[in-house]
């Protein structure tokens, strides 16, 4: 069908589901251990159960606002249905969480399909704060595209952090795709410009631009991002086709501010959430899906080159609730 078929194929295979299961193992273990603790010795969902549930969701980094929303919805259901047993809580929670994810994660793939086939490279600009795993995510992304027979060009526009360019070049060699770089301390916008131009020259399908990590409260650095974006548009007027914000899965409430500020500067179109294997916090995915109308597109669940998955809410919720 299109650009992202290779992801889908993988997902259908049992290994991929297994790796997501394994990656989210901690989240699940924690979540259900505690959920069963919360309802132990009780028949109906009462105030105390809801209180425990609040703690449980908050503890998974879902965030206060979304948690309160979920609790309110469940409260309303309890009031309506009069008698809700604790056994049903599991099912209700699953429905509520699936609903939260549903609101923002549907129908995004079609856009990508058409964008890839327009004869011009599909330009992805990757942004985020320091240390969230941008370069690693790009390496993994490049690998997936390359493995699917797509022609990929990488642009090393993180010219600030020591050895960031080298890091991307090594990834380029590993994956076997060309990297456009001007070395350290050069103008990132000009690297991005050249990378996009090179992509056009080579007839590439995908151009991925790495940018330096920046804290979202640094005005000048955020302005720089807008500039990088503008400069690319001189080569391809509608580039970048995707602005991918990478968020660290272990980040707490600050993730919301990051999403907000980066969106202000660059109109983020998709999210990648990394390091979900190491934390008990798959919950941040739920909170972010609820608070922003930006789809979660990728999740990183391990350190291997293949440990980047296209986010699928059904797989995710299934994985979260599988006992």
């Amino acid at each position: 069908m299109g650009l992202f078929d290779f992801f889908k194929k993988d997902k259908e295979s049992t290994t991929q589901q297994a790796s997501l299961d394994a990656g989210l193992e901690k989240t699940k273990a924690n979540f259900f251990e505690q959920l069963s603790k919360a309802v132990v010795g009780k028949n109906t969902v009462d105030e105390a159960v809801l209180d425990d549930l609040e703690g449980l969701l908050v503890h998974a980094d879902v965030g206060i606002e979304t948690t309160v929303k979920v609790i309110d919805r469940i409260e309303a259901r309890v009031a309506r249905d009069k008698y809700v047993s604790t056994g049903e809580l599991d099912r209700i929670l699953r429905e509520e969480i699936a609903a939260l994810l549903e609101d923002n994660n549907s129908g995004s793939m079609a856009v990508l399909d058409s964008a890839g086939s327009s004869g011009q490279p599909y330009v992805i600009m990757v942004v985020g704060v320091n240390g969230v795993g941008k370069t690693t995510t790009i390496g993994k992304l490049a690998h997936r595209f390359h493995a699917a027979g797509k022609k990929v060009v990488l642009g090393a526009a993180d010219t600030f952090r020591a050895a960031a360019v080298d890091q991307l070049i090594i990834w380029g060699e590993r994956v076997g795709v060309p990297v456009v770089s001007h070395g350290m301390n050069t103008d990132p916008a000009s690297v991005a410009y050249d990378a996009v131009r090179k992509g056009v020259e080579l007839g590439a399908d995908v151009v991925i631009i790495d940018t330096a990590g920046r804290l979202h409260n640094k005005v000048n650095l955020m302005n720089e991002l807008s500039k990088i974006k503008r400069v690319m548009q001189k080569v391809i007027p509608d580039a970048p086709h995707e602005v991918l914000l990478v968020l660290d899965g272990s980040t707490g409430q600050n993730a919301f501010l990051q999403a907000k500020e980066f969106t202000k500067a660059t109109e983020v179109t998709a999210l990648a959430i990394t390091k979900l294997d190491g934390t008990a916090r798959g919950g941040v995915v739920i909170g972010i899906s609820d608070q922003f109308s930006i789809p979660v597109r990728y999740i990183g669940v391990g350190e291997k080159m293949t440990d980047l998955q296209l986010f699928d809410r059904h797989t995710f919720v299934n994985s979260l609730f599988k006992k």
Partner: peptide, 12 residues
Amino acid sequence: VDSMTGQDAVNT
């Protein structure tokens, strides 16, 4: 440790 870390800071 990253000061932006959320709930998991404790376990780590």
